[in-house]
Amino acid sequence: MLNLEREEIRVRLPVFEGPLDLLLYLIKKDELDIYDIPIERITTKYLEYLEILKIVNLEAAGEFMVMAATLIYIKSRTLLPTDVRPPEEDAEEDDPRWDLIRQLVEYRKFKEAAFELHLREIEREGVFERHARPMEFDPEPWDAENLGVFDLISAFQKVLKRAEARREDLREIFEDRWTVSDKIVFLKDFFATRPTATFSALFATNASRSEVVVTFLALLEMMRLRYLGARQNSVFEDIEIYLRRDEDEQHDA
């Protein structure tokens, strides 16, 4: 009904949604009155199309065959004079076409409704809903995973500055001889007595710049070995270093 207006109908035959659809098309094409269908003419036309349909698509033809039988039956009844027609069950009207006409009219209404829905579907698919969500304020502390190496480095720089400041008072300078492994031992001892410490606390006893650097390297190494973890409870707070308890055994062994 929608795009079958032209004569290229033959190639478009499978578009018919069923026998009623085909009948409606035939009625519309020949501008017939749906309430007064010339049954002989429509039956002939219908059978012609059925022939084509059989060639195109045998499987779909079943339902179309049933309608063909109905049409021929109606046609044969209309040919008989009223008084010799065998009585039909449930026949409300004298006109044998009536059931078919009612069915066609109803089907046409729903076909129009379907088109109406189609328009709405197109309308609706171009319309988008809002997807608002409240801003997430994370109740969980920032975890080691979230804490980048740059966070550690900037914390380290603060400690370094503090170490520099501490050296303002003049005193004798001597060469430090700290190694990373010394400091690893120191950190292990340090965390033996407490589970957590602030980042700066680790450097509290460090006297020189080189000692601070070595301690920091030791810390990075122990984090790499997953012996220690780092976390930050909020963005600007001091970084907290903690003992990774789940790893205790494999490192202490």
């Binding site: 578009v15 949604e17 729903f110 409704a113 829905l117 189609h118 579907e121 698919e125």
Partner: peptide, 15 residues
């Protein structure tokens, strides 16, 4: 989009 057959069926069910 739904096919004409699906739309017809859906229309009948809806109404």
């Amino acid at each position: 989009r739904l096919s004409p057959a699906a739309l017809e069926t859906l229309a009948i069910i809806a109404y």
